[in-house]
Write a protein that binds this DNA or RNA. Structure first.
Lengths: 112, 112
DNA sequence: CTCATTATTGGTAATTTTGTCAAATATGCA
DNA sequence: TGCATATTTGACAAAATTACCAATAATGAG
């Protein structure tokens, strides 16, 4: 793998890494319905506000969400909704994994 | 966020986390064209074989790839090609980020 | 101005991830 | 059987991630 190619994979990975956390996935889905301020998201998530704020800054830094200040609040919104199309595939993977686990379980039972 | 919901986000995140590494993204794309053994992938990537093997086991564990033994070799293949559809969106994010950086740069120049 | 509200940042400890080396395993061949 | 090849695993150090608390901005209301 040459250097330019590797750089491109690093760039891609950094964006995917920004999504790779339960809280941040939740935020992405929550913003699908419209913009939200940090306070609202914090209530929904049920964690320390500083924690949520840091998650938001990771998503913002990756270019997945954007923000807009209004009064003392900061409203975040989804910048690239195509991200959402990905969730369907993730669900497929989860489903396939569960199906496979089910088969393993069945063959264990059959062996008795 | 209730417990069941949180669990689902954890499950999703664990799969995305498995993708969140340059080497593992490379593997996913490499397997798009067909199955590959560890040796081949190691050559393509240019890292220690033990490192590549561990990356493969992470992807396999997440249910993204599967393996098949043949002689002394182990061939890996993509289990869920829908993953690939995601890369387009990632590229969009990268492009949008670069465009934005370009604008910032331009406005800096204009200010002089 | 002072206070309450909203949000971000710095410090820190616990946990996780990553890469490499060495050792262990498995397979096919002479 | 003994050996070479292919792969995985364990140990371990370095680096990154994460969550919380406390401290620091920034804004609007009284």
């Amino acid at each position: 793998m040459n250097d330019a190619t590797r750089k491109q994979y690093v760039a891609r990975a950094s964006i995917i890494k920004a999504m790779a956390h339960p809280t941040r996935l939740f935020v992405i889905e929550a913003l699908e319905k419209g913009e939200r301020c940090v306070n609202d998201l914090t209530d929904m998530i049920g964690a320390d506000m500083s924690t949520v704020s840091k998650h938001l800054s990771i998503l913002k830094n990756a270019g997945i969400i954007g923000d807009k200040k209004s009064g003392t609040s900061v409203f975040y919104h989804l910048k690239t909704p195509c991200i959402l199309g990905f969730f369907g595939c993730i669900e497929d993977v989860i489903e396939s994994n569960m199906r496979q686990q089910g088969e393993v379980l069945k063959s264990c039972k059959a062996r008795r």
